[in-house]
Design a protein around this nucleic acid. Sequence first.
RNA 1: GCCGACGUAGCUCAGGGGUAGAGCAACUGAUUCGUAAUCAGUAGGUCACAGGUUCAAAUCCUGUCGUCGGCACCA
Length: 647
Amino acid sequence: MVALTLPDGSVRTFERAVSGAELAAAIGPGLAKAALAVKVDGELRDLARSIGRDAKVEIVTAKSAEALALIRHDAAHALAQAVQELYPGTQVTFGPATEDGFYYDFVRPAPFTPDDFPKIEQRMREIVDRNLPLVREEWSPSDAVEHFESSGEAYKAEWVREIGTRGEAISIYRQGEWLDLCVGPHLPATGKLPKAFKLMKVAGAYWRGDAKNAQLQRIYGTAWASEADLKAYLTRLEEAEKRDHRRIGREMGLFHVQEEAVGSVFWHPKGWELWRTLENFVRGRLRASGYVEVRTPQLVDRKLWEASGHWEKFEQGMFLAAPRSAGARAEEGERVYAIKPMNCPCHVQIFNQGLVSYRQLPIRMAEFGSCHRYEPSGAMHGIMRVRAFTQDDAHIFCTEDQIVPEAVAFCALLRGVYRALGFDEFIVKFADRPPVRAGTDETWDKAEAALKNAAKAAGLELIHNPGEGAFYGPKLEFVLRDSIGRDWQCGTLQIDFVMPERLDAAYVGEDNQKHRPAMLHRAMLGSFERFIGILIEHYAGHFPLWLAPVQVAVATITQDGDAYAGEVARELADSGLRVVLDTANEKIGYKVREHSLAKVPVILAIGKREAELRTVSVRRLGSNAQETLALQDALARLVAEAEIPGP
RNA sequence: GCCGACGUAGCUCAGGGGUAGAGCAACUGAUUCGUAAUCAGUAGGUCACAGGUUCAAAUCCUGUCGUCGGCACCA
């Protein structure tokens, strides 16, 4: 007897083990037809596998949350089969479902191009029409290796060899003539795969994610339960593209980049206005949180980077500089400067001037530090990943006892800053010790424990990010998402016992002995460039009034209003608002459109009536409602709204 | 750095061996208008850069630079 409990609480009993398909059929013919897989005690399984014990079960249909992953995984298999049918000799490797689609990695001497997509998609549809049953088989590792080697699938054979050593049977899924090594689960037949899929792009990808390995050709696709869902997804992508910071940055005249300064940003007046507003906002929060601000050199002798350990690890990523009269040869013993790639060694130099007493700790030393790193060419992306950037960096020098309260305070500060900037949600990752690192295991144990405790005390939910810590210490990574779903690390909190040791930082303790301080590296925005990019996409350029580079446009309706409009603009500007005056010879409709496209939050229209009554007609971005206010009322309201949000 | 695509007017794009194109923007003039495009005219280009093939190259080939999408990297 097998008793199966359904989601509604009802129990079905069977004389013998039944498959998911039989269970669905027993419940009803409609469900039998719609069934895609079955969930047994939370585990997703093929419909054909038998359930031999009492369990909680749930039939998965296209409406289930789990269905999409199944559909996408099946789409990957259909893609692989289609490609192998169309391009004989192509090897298959891996093809998983992803967040909104799937991909499959192939090995083939000739490149795939997007021109191949229609043909491949057509063949995938044919495979769906064939309605091939997906059959799971278990093979011995040796049979599997033999099969893949004889069919020229070197990568699959390598993989089977590796998992074969674990002594498990090899799970093979067969669809018609075609088969693939795969743990499943899968849909019962290719005919269950909705045709709502589309191939999206080709890209290179390294075998097993390692740049030392061969590069494979990856074909990305997206797949959905219905045509409508697919269409909605494609529309979403189009919408996201309109939020792209590169596009909005140009449209709003915020910044540009050009060939002569790859990886650096030319900030235009409006973009720089935004930057300064953001910087002053952060500065205010730092001051309120007991930070001091410093400024350290751009060019620093390589000796300091050797001492800090950065030279050894990041030499290739540093820009060097030497005066032309002395340098260019950079012979042994000559002074070579690195343009600073980070601020921490310099902050330690400030800490090291004079003797620090434990009574002075913690010292929270902040710098809006301009750094340069030679980022790999392929890593560059708009203003989000650049070679010249400015961090809202700070280092907290403290005793070990102060680590947890300082870390907790930082998390609270960061949460407040993010909230004020419109980010109520963010991801926090906990990155622990990397394989190559400085410091003893004991030190790392201590640092990791401290960081975890702090995050816990701050009530943060952590996602484990194993082996991704900095070489000197573990970190918390605060991650924001861009408009097209890419994650960007912005904030960070890192505990470091290594740098103070290497650079010989010390304070005098209560016991009159010298001690090493702990050092917390922390940033909230990360880099201004990246954060402004994220901010632009987050708001799609429609900034709240306090952040907007241009806050108010004063636009005249006819020339009769020019004098008064000038007065209005001057008065607003005198009150600290960022104003443009538009007395151009155009219709008001044209001006409204122009300033709306420029994403100016407030338009004040000035006509004859306003000039006579000393009022303004207020129009907000995103609304076509108008409100007529006395100039002084409007001014007071706007000034209040434009205030930088305090802690 | 690796794989692929792309680079034509300020922007968005067409043209794919035989005189360099459109819309928007810009400029000039007319128009004085009430909340997302007034009308007319004018000007604007070493077709990324460098070589090569050809009677002839924006167009075909090679290289370089850059951008874009991934991968790898990210102190």
